[in-house]
Every structure is written in structure tokens, then in C-alpha cells.
Design a binder for these strands. Structure first.
Lengths: 116, 116
DNA sequence: TGTACATTTGCACAATCATTCAAATGACAA
DNA sequence: TTGTCATTTGAATGATTGTGCAAATGTACA
């Protein structure tokens, strides 16, 4: 009924095999976790929510998010590297905006789930 | 004198006001981040993906996820506290399953976003 | 030149977290 | 009872990370 591989004990070998076969069909868990980690921080979430409504410069984002300017800048770089936001320079100011609305859709779904 | 003028510089006051008014309509960023943090870990994601296909005992989950038994148990408690999974005892074994498929929908959306 | 302002970056620190080991709990069988 | 197996728990640890401070970069205007 049970079999040993190394020191792992499998109790329902057939079920494990079936589920394992199903699991490989979806993207790697690390890739998905990596992406979801971007959204798992209040500051980054606020930034994204704000940018969904309007393109914004760092100054104004700071006021909306409630964090130090440098702290925000660090997060903006992070979001830039993950291709979530893009920016354009206009004189002294840097205007940030979302690259697309993929994250927006996910946030909406989570939003709906939270306030049920 | 109990209040200071904070030294935050707002450049486009009208835009900031408008966006700020929009932002309060959605759930708090901390609540959403808290929930998304659950999904931002490969191990927990594998657990959830596995449980979407079948109810499973800890032993079999260990084999599917590839982590120590106690490590998995810690994560299962975490998921239990967040109401993502539930479990029933049957003799020595504990069978875990998802409480609902809300997380599944979110994972599917992320999945679709990743693989393109 | 200068000064003033917006933004970025490097460094440091505190806090969080995922993991493992060892020990404890609980359930069943002999 | 005793022993074994499945699971949980506590403690310790290594790694990651969000943040602020101070300095640097870049831009515009006197």
C-alpha cells in the first residue's frame, strides 16, 4: 500500500502520480510566485492602484502612497525591472505609468475576493 | 503646537486629489497584500495547485511539493489560518483540501498572464 | 557660473520568513 | 502496556527585503 523512495513515504501512489502529471501542465510555481511577489506589498500595490487612474510623477506618487521619496524610488525601480511600470522624463520630473493592465485585472479579482 | 507641516511636495494637486478619491474605493492595500503574500511562495503555490486536483494527505503532499514534512506542516498551518485550506482527520492521516476555488481563479489568471 | 529642486543610488539596519532539526502529540496495532 | 507511523510544534538559522538617510546625479533658471 505504501512505497519508499529515498526517505519520502507515499501513501496513495496512484493519486500522487495523477496529480503530478496534472501539475506539470501549468507554469512553474517559482515563476508564478516571483510575479505574485511583486503584488504582495502594500506600497507597490498603492503605486499600481494610483497609476491605474493616472500617469503620475514621483512627487505626487509620494504623497499618495505615504512613503519617503527614496523608498518610493527603490520600489519604482523594482517595478520597472519587472516591466510593470514605464516612465518618461519631462524636464526635472519623471512621469510613471503602467505598461499594461494585466496586473489591474488580477488586482480586480483579488479585490472582489476580499470584499465578498 | 502639535502639528507640523509635512515637507511633502505635491506638484499636481488636482490630479492627486482626484486619484486619492478613487483609491479609497478599493479594499485596503494592506489587506490585499496580505492575501497576495499567501500566493507569493513556490511551496504554497505547489500545495494549492496539487489540492486543486485532489484531496491529499500530508505524506503525499510532501512527495508532490518536494519539501520536508515539518516544513510542509508549517505551511499548511499558515494556509489553514488564512482559510485557504481545510482538513479532515482519518485515523493517523490528515487529508487536506481547498476551502473554495477563489485562489484557483486568481492562479489561472496569473498563469495566463505568465505564459504569453 | 551659481542655486534650487526632482529623482536616483549606495549603504545600513530591522524585520519578516521559509526552512530544517529535534522533540512532542496522537492514533492504531500487537 | 509498548512500538510504530503520520503529523504537529518549537527553536534556531540563513536569506530576503522594505525602508530611510545621506550623497550623487540631472535639469532648469537666476
Amino acid at each position: 500500500m505504501s512505497s519508499d523512495v529515498c526517505d519520502i513515504t507515499i501513501i496513495h501512489q496512484d493519486v500522487v502520480d495523477r496529480v503530478a502529471k496534472e501539475m506539470v501542465k501549468s507554469p512553474s510555481a517559482t515563476a508564478m510566485a516571483d510575479f505574485l511577489k511583486v503584488l504582495s506589498d502594500p506600497t507597490r500595490l498603492k503605486v499600481i492602484q494610483a497609476l491605474r487612474h493616472s500617469e503620475l510623477c514621483v512627487c505626487d506618487l509620494t504623497a499618495l502612497v505615504g512613503i519617503s521619496v527614496s523608498g518610493l524610488s527603490h520600489q519604482l525601480r523594482y517595478l520597472r525591472n519587472k516591466n510593470i511600470v514605464k516612465f518618461r522624463k519631462e524636464g526635472k520630473l519623471a512621469y510613471y505609468s503602467l505598461t499594461d493592465d494585466h496586473v489591474g485585472q488580477i488586482i480586480d479579482l483579488v479585490s472582489k475576493h476580499i470584499s465578498e
